[in-house]
Amino acid sequence: MEQTKMKCIIVDDEPLLRQHIAEMTEQVDFLELVATFPSALAAASRLQQGDIDLIFLDINMPYLNGIDFLESLENPPLCIFITAYSEYALEGFRLQAVDYLLKPIVFQRFFQAATKAFQQFVQRNKSTQEPVANDTMLFVRQGDAFVKISWTDILYAESMQNYTKLHFKERTLTIHQTMLALEEALPGSHFFRIHKSYLVNVNHIDIISGGRVYIREQELPISRTKREELLQNVVFKKLLSR
């Protein structure tokens, strides 16, 4: 599988430094150098094309410095600042720059900053490719109709052979779907089958004690093997992600 690369540009008014950074990018297999520019003004039109993922940007440049230039961009790419002065680091963090490189730049430090940028790049792409997390609406069948509900409001589901009863805080809803069909429609990161008859929303679990799960004072059975799986694979992950 071909590795995804970040398209990058270099913006610096020092020709030798531009060449030095360009040579370092050639040594990093996840970087693809598109162009180099002697000033922010020269780079502006290229950035308007919207396909640049990362910019190595000098701060001290004539006419328009790197900080003012980055602030002027509506949808800026990831940025690694280049500077001879460490006091600019605070400004870089304010602008959410990935990192800053102090001159003279050594390859080890360059690679560290580039790797940090690549990690953010991968995470950003992953987020845009995944289903929208806040799309919580679900249509369930009730008789001859389909009813829209929010799965975040489901406390737990109870199997009734060819039907399933959904338990909410203030009501219950019996739907014409099997537990298996419902389980396949719900996000596995939020719902867990604790028993052949019960599917619970892990976000609403209050207590796990012995062979029981408690949701709003409702006691539900859980098998020993399912209990360990619930604790190890679901609940701990939820706690760690908070």
Rank of each mutant, 00 (worst) to 15 (best):
Asn162Ala: 06
Asn162Cys: 07
Asn162Val: 11
Asn162Arg: 11
Tyr163Asn: 08
Tyr163Ser: 00
Thr164His: 05
Thr164Trp: 12
Thr164Gln: 07
Thr164Asp: 05
Thr164Val: 13
Lys165Val: 09
Lys165Gly: 03
Lys165Arg: 14
Leu166Phe: 13
Leu166Asn: 06
Leu166Arg: 03
His167Arg: 04
Phe168Val: 01
Glu170Met: 10
Glu170Asp: 15
Glu170Gly: 00
Glu170Ser: 12
Glu170Val: 06
Glu170Leu: 02
Arg171Ser: 15
Arg171Glu: 15
Arg171Ala: 14
Arg171Met: 13
Thr172Gln: 13
Thr172Asp: 12
Thr172Tyr: 03
Leu173Ala: 10
Leu173Glu: 12
Thr174Glu: 12
Ile175Asp: 08
His176Met: 11
His176Gln: 14
His176Thr: 15
Gln177Tyr: 12
Gln177Trp: 10
Gln177Leu: 13
Thr178Met: 10
Thr178Gln: 09
Met179Glu: 09
Met179Lys: 02
Met179Thr: 06
Leu180Ser: 14
Leu180Asp: 12
Leu180Tyr: 07
Ala181Val: 05
Ala181Arg: 00
Ala181Met: 08
Glu183Arg: 06
Glu184Ser: 04
Glu184Cys: 08
Ala185Tyr: 05
Leu186Met: 10
Leu186Thr: 07
Leu186Asn: 11
Pro187Phe: 04
Pro187Ser: 06
Pro187Ile: 07
Gly188His: 07
Gly188Leu: 09
Ser189Val: 10
Ser189Ala: 15
His190Gly: 04
His190Leu: 07
His190Gln: 12
His190Asn: 05
Phe191Asn: 06
Phe191Ala: 10
Phe191Tyr: 13
Phe192Thr: 01
Phe192Asp: 05
Arg193Ser: 04
Arg193Leu: 08
Arg193Val: 03
Arg193Gln: 05
Arg193Met: 07
Ile194Glu: 04
Ile194Tyr: 02
His195Gln: 01
Lys196Ser: 04
Lys196Val: 04
Lys196Cys: 00
Lys196Ile: 03
Lys196Asp: 03
